[in-house]
């Protein structure tokens, strides 16, 4: 088992998975929160954009989003995503960043919908009291509603992050050598030890996702708003 892990650089591949997950998670949380803000905004154009975006990206297969991102941005528009074109790793870095972008575009819709359901758990009286004190819409959202909404959706957000971790495997489709990319190679060349190969990857993902669930489960209990 360990010879396999070493031979195929499994640890490096999982490290890439972790990095993809990490950056996409942070960006999805930010973009998802902004989208949720748009979806509850009093400005009709913002609400329309938020709704359109979520329905479009949430209902498109992730593979399609990633491949489209890659083809449109990289091949057609020649976007470099701030990667250094002289660098030897230019394409690896570019693909990595495009994968983060695609994962974010997709995952943010789930973050948005989680947060929106969280917003619905905040009694309207909270926002009314804040408005009655003279806070602006943005302040009401940022200071009163979102902090309470977040606290009630830590659990669902953990599920979104776990799904994201597993979804990083789709990045193979645009040539990022994360865990699933290596898995494919190993299935091909180590077919006699296929069970071991599967075991390695199943374990790998459990090790990555289990702490997310456990830690955020504790956090959810701790930050829950008492009413």
């Amino acid at each position: 088992m360990f010879d396999l892990i070493e031979k195929y650089n499994v640890l490096d591949a999982f490290w890439l998975t972790i990095k993809l997950t990490f950056y996409a998670a942070i960006l999805s949380l930010i973009w998802g929160t902004i989208l949720a803000g748009m979806r509850v905004s009093p400005v009709p154009a913002m609400r329309a954009f938020g709704t359109l975006y979520v329905n479009l990206f949430r209902n498109t297969p992730l593979t399609l989003i990633l491949v489209a991102t890659s083809i449109v941005l990289k091949n057609t528009l020649g976007v470099t995503m701030f990667a250094d074109e002289q660098s030897q790793d230019f394409f690896a870095i570019l693909d990595f960043r495009l994968a983060i972008l695609g994962l974010t575009a997709y995952t943010a819709t789930f973050v948005c919908e989680s947060i929106r359901s969280g917003i619905n758990t905040v009694p309207v009286g909270q926002a009314e009291a804040a408005r009655a004190l003279g806070l602006s819409f943005a302040q009401v959202l940022r200071i009163i509603v979102l902090p309470q909404a977040f606290r009630s959706v830590v659990g669902p957000l953990a599920s979104v992050l776990i799904a994201l971790t597993k979804n990083t495997t789709v990045a193979t489709a645009i040539g990022v050598a994360e865990a699933a990319g290596i898995l494919r190679a190993m299935i091909e060349f180590e077919s006699d030890r296929i069970m071991v190969v599967f075991l390695i990857f199943a374990l790998g993902f459990v090790i990555l996702t289990l702490p997310t669930g456990l830690i955020l489960g504790q956090v959810a209990k701790k930050v829950a708003v008492k009413r």
Binding site: P42, G125, Q126, A129, R131, A132, V225
Partner: peptide, 25 residues
């Protein structure tokens, strides 16, 4: 109407609700 001016007016008008509506967090 809605906007900054309305927020300014609300700041000058105190309101107390039946359900208190204190910020829970």
């Amino acid at each position: 109407a809605e906007g900054k001016a309305l927020a300014g007016l609300r700041a000058d008008v105190g309101m107390v609700f039946q359900q208190f509506n204190l910020f829970a967090h």
